[in-house]
Amino acid sequence: MRLLAIITALVFALDQATKLYVVQVLGLAERLRIDVVPPYLNLRMAWNRGMNFGLLSNDGDLGRWLLIGVALAISAGVTLWLARGPQRPVALVSGGLLVGGALGNVVDRLVYGAVADFLNMSCCGIENPYAFNVADIAIFAGALGLVVFTGRDKTP
């Protein structure tokens, strides 16, 4: 369980540090766009008030608090699930990625009222209109890891 806590803390810190640097220090909130390595990596400010791709973004404070509650419930559920017995290290890392990312986005919703998304990647003539952040990457990787690396061992 210590590994779960360490990964959670590292992901949370990395997420919040990148958001602080990009939004406040680089001033992306005012500049709205910074081309880093166009078109492959760009910074595009997007305040996501909903879930992925803006789902539930028009529900105001109700949606905000609902998403905070869901993220906290999932984080607690994953932590309790992984704590119920011995787990492989890869499962604890996956859980830490998911929980750390979820908590990073919860803090955004509490502080800003929305999640600060800023990473935008495009390639090969296809322009991606969406932005994401470190927490989103961690949540996706953690959820995928939990699906792939947990479950019942197969017995003959």
Rank of each mutant, 00 (worst) to 15 (best):
L55Y: 15
I34E: 03
S94D: 06
A83Y: 14
W65K: 05
L62G: 14
I34Y: 08
F12K: 01
D61I: 08
R84D: 12
L14F: 14
D117I: 06
L80I: 08
L32G: 13
Q87S: 06
G54R: 09
V23Q: 12
V111D: 12
A102S: 08
L110V: 11
D59C: 06
L82T: 01
D15E: 09
G77Y: 14
L20V: 07
G77V: 13
N52M: 11
A83E: 07
V106S: 00
G60R: 07
P89K: 05
V107E: 03
Y112V: 10
A83R: 13
Q24V: 13
V111I: 15
V90Q: 10
A91R: 00
G104H: 00
L10F: 03
G69V: 03
V107D: 05
A83I: 09
W47D: 02
R31L: 10
W81M: 07
D59P: 13
L92P: 01
L28C: 04
V106C: 06
R31A: 14
A17M: 04
V115Y: 00
G101L: 02
G50K: 02
D15R: 05
Q16T: 09
D117L: 10
G104L: 00
L92K: 05
W47N: 01
E30R: 08
N42G: 10
D61G: 11
I74D: 00
L28V: 04
V93C: 11
L43Y: 01
G85Q: 12
M45Q: 14
L62H: 15
W65R: 04
G63Q: 00
M45I: 14
L55C: 11
L103R: 01
A76W: 07
A73P: 06
M51S: 10
G60Q: 12
I68T: 05
E30H: 13
G100M: 05
L20M: 09
